[in-house]
Write a protein that binds this DNA or RNA. Structure first.
Lengths: 112, 112
DNA sequence: GGCTCTACCTTGATCCTCCAGGTATTCATT
DNA sequence: AATGAATACCTGGAGGATCAAGGTAGAGCC
């Protein structure tokens, strides 16, 4: 598992990134993250939900309860334009820090 | 400036990385980080010192007061073998998260 | 003396993660 | 029809973290 700090830093960009390619809901986001990381990142759901609530409260996401084909109630989250802008900011910051660490570690810089 | 979360996540790997190439002291570490990031990351010293204390407390660093040529007292920090191991772990975790974000963002994977 | 730079530290407010609980529905198995 | 697993959401409280705002102190310059 990740350290508490890295989990905190990656939560927002990860969630916003996932939602930037289409709406989704809590449980599916958890699984998506688990898949993407081959099981390395496995968040507790009690970690995810408060983050979703906070992002919605900050106007970066919008939610709506809907009923899925399987009959279950789900709370779907959609990224807002404010959320897209925030994602750009998060991305910029991440790449900035990443570039510094990469230099310290002697890794090649990313080609953009 | 960085978000609180990203600052937190990058603090440990940044400090350990800087100290892995030789001992240093608080004030110089602050300047090194400022230099490396071209001023983008500018930590408050009240952020750095508690981190140094924590890392020392965890056995990742060792410190010693010494007098510099300019006559000032400085607290020099040296990374321990436990600290070097911790750095490896931090690095691994960072690269893992970075790889996931890079994929989501359509960036090229790092060549290692 | 007064100012700036160097150099370190602590306290308190505030925020965040995460463990440990809880609720509820669907579906498959016994 | 009862049990269990998977799906799907939520909250409270403990513990940890940053960070602003304060403090101490010596060196060098005018």
């Amino acid at each position: 598992m990740l350290t508490r700090e890295l989990a905190g830093a990656s939560a927002k960009p990860l969630i916003l990134s996932i939602l930037s390619s289409g709406e989704s809901y809590g449980y599916a986001i958890l699984q998506r993250i688990e898949d993407l990381s081959d099981g390395v990142l496995s968040w507790d759901d009690s970690t995810l939900y408060p983050v979703l609530h906070r992002l919605e409260n900050d106007g970066l996401l919008e939610s709506s309860w809907r009923k899925a084909d399987n009959g279950r109630r789900r709370k779907y989250y959609l990224i807002t334009s404010k959320g897209l802008k925030a994602l750009e900011g998060e991305k910029k910051q991440w790449l900035c820090v990443d570039a510094i660490l990469a230099e310290l570690w002697g890794l090649q810089p990313r080609l953009t």
